[in-house]
Design a binder for these strands. Sequence first.
RNA 1: GCCCGGAUGGUGGAAUUGGUAGACACAAGGGACUUAAAAUCCCUCAACCGCAAGGUUGUGCCGGUUCAAGUCCGGCUCCGGGUACCA
Length: 810
Amino acid sequence: MVKYDHGAVEAKWRKVWEERGTDRLDLDKAPKPFYNLMMFPYPSAEGLHVGNVFAFVGSDIQGRFHRLLGYDVFEPMGFDAFGMHSENFALKTGRHPAAMVPQNIRNFRENQLKKVGLMLDWSRELDTTSPEYYHWTQWMFVTLYKNGFAYRKKAPVNWCPGCQTVLAAEQVIDGECERCSAVVVKKDLEQWYFRTTAFAQELLDCLDHIDWSERTKTAQRNWIGRSQGAEVTFKIDGGPDFKIFTTRPDTLFGVTYMVFSPEHPLLDLIAAPECRRALAEYRESAARLSEVDRQAEGREKTGVFTGAYALNPVNQEKIPVWAADYVLMGYGTGAIMAVPGHDQRDFDFAAEFNLPVRQVVAPGGKVFDRLDEAYSGEGLLVNSAGFNGLPAREEGGAAIVRRLAEQGLAEPRVNYRLRDWCVSRQRYWGPPIPIIYCEKCGAVPVPEKDLPVLLPYLDDYRPDGSGFSPLRRDESFYRAVCPECGGPATRETDVSDNFLCSAWYFYRYPSTDFSDRPFDPARTKKWLPVDLYVGGHENAVLHLLYSRWLCKALRRCGCLDFDEPYKKFVAHGMIVRDGAKMSKSRGNVLNPDEYIQEFGADAFRMYLMFMGAYLEGGDFREGGVKAMKSFLDRLWTAVLPDESGAEALADGEPEDAETRYWLHSTIKNVTHDLERFSYNTAVARLMELINHLTRHRVRNRVVSEAVVRLLAPLAPHVAEEMWEILGHRETVFAGGWPVHDEEAARRSTVEYVIQVNGKVRARLELAVGLDESEIEPRVMDNPAVAKWLEGKSIVKKIYVPDKLLNLVVR
RNA sequence: GCCCGGAUGGUGGAAUUGGUAGACACAAGGGACUUAAAAUCCCUCAACCGCAAGGUUGUGCCGGUUCAAGUCCGGCUCCGGGUACCA
């Protein structure tokens, strides 16, 4: 039976909250600030996805819970509306992003987000595409540039020949364009970069002191990819010196050839005349190869001999130098020493070209007759002259490096996989990079007083394959005056990567009322760093790493006085439907609006949280939301005075111990569950309590008021309604979080498990706090136990107070 | 290949430090109410043997530690995610 009309109740409270300003906060008063941040969405035309709702509700529960705990919770929302997602969708549907985005935002805000019942402070909404916002995105760029954190260089970028445009790395899926599936190739273009590598070590070190899940930290550590080794100087026989990076200096005596990346500039200098032609052909074909082909799984190694020889610094051995595309120009020095005996890639290459393999690490001193694959394990050095017998990786490597270092030929070295952040995008829908090029003065940042550089409205904003942004076609935008000398100049026409917009948005929320600065120092001091950040694991690397980096850079620029932007980050899980990932192609994407309409936001929120563990994700099943509405109806009946007035609520603490136990243990458990994001069990606890109340027809005001407040973070609308019916004028969120009585939360009796040889043979209901001597006689008397002891002798007794007694017999 | 997760009834999922496996639900079956249906309420519900009492097995597989293992250790299998000639 439907007990309350969710449509009417939810509409009523949406209106009341809005009118009373329940969720608006005076940021300067707020004595106990708690900044509760959720990852802002990009406002797609399809509308809010159920995954977004799942993420937001889990975060909102924390916000509401903390508010009940007495914190002044700031919970803002905004829209990440620049970038490829919006632009691609606009291109596909033939609409202009400048017209589409505001519509989508309105739809998100008015028709969807406001109906979910999130306690968002809409007075501080932000939109990254508004000039008031991207003014400061551009200011970030200028500030970084002035402090040496931004630079420009020519480098290969991902080029999609199908769409005739440059793609972001994240748009390249397995080497193909995510839009047209054309094979992406490399193209050299002038790009702007941020020096993310400047803080590689710091980004790594700070992970040790922030409250993030190990999983997310590990993803970041892997991305940064620190490897420790040595830089060793080799010499071309009759030619120049060159450097290589290795993590295995202990295997230097096992080097049987060298490999240069095909792009390595030194190749021109060292190649023997008779090899030049073949080398040139190889380099050309390597350059033509797409990323997919070059990285294809199980691809045979290719390469060509340069005709040059190098001298191994440890023994002056003369070894051939090859060029091969399995060595990358972008990592280390672009050249390697090849140790086929102990590196599988080198082994494969050596096998292909009949190069010698030499063992220099022997496990337990054992020298192999022949190697079928590279040996990469531990062992003692062999075939290594004066270093034989040393444990390879530790002492061996260190000793060899020390010897070479004395001659200035090696030094310990750390390398990172992390690259500088390429922020240029040859696209339209983004904040123009605020730089002016003057023939006389070079690259000049746009003066702060001239910011923002407005994105002009272009009717035709399609990329044209020229390698330049469509903005280049707008002469009035492109032509500029040099801010330094007043001479003729041109504007940078690339826009910045969308990840820059989202790297700093949380600094803006508390300061949206300041138009003369990106963030106000006093507000920032009070509200940042963010207390709790909830978001998807798919952002574990890019967004979180970029924003961590920006925080460190801004600190060096004197704009911030802290090192990490988020005190705590929690990654929620992913929802699937009937065990399968939701996708448009499967046709199993579900629309949150329909469920909210039919069963209410409260029931929908509760079911999403009940489905599975919030941090793991869950499986959405048809019928679940409906069942949750039935539960809310049962709860309504159980805690409110009935309409006839026949069964009033008793006042005071409930008298029977059983009800007191259920009340206090539920408060205790729900509190603990919310603290650890275990929402599914929190809902289950509430169900147990309601089951008890219903079965025993308990009607008590103290219990009801506790239940309503425990429910409030999960189902805020109906909780407000019930709170009002219970006679309160103020919002339930001013009602305070219920506190449990530890004594009452414990039962007076407990079920003891009696085991014989580890098998459960009896269960006894006994008073808590008994010691072994008190329970033992009762156990021995028990026929179910006695039968297993017959003819045996007890050799050991294990007693766990209030839990179990295990008798070991023989 | 490497790194990180995960595997528990018909299903989604519970299980603080090793101490009652399957909480809470969904589905299913049975019953009550009803002319009937819906709604609601009550009961059953891991498998096997047994009339029952009770017993045996059981948390992906194999082995180990322990009085006691879903939980700890070693070796696998499968699934999901990330990443990749990173030297």
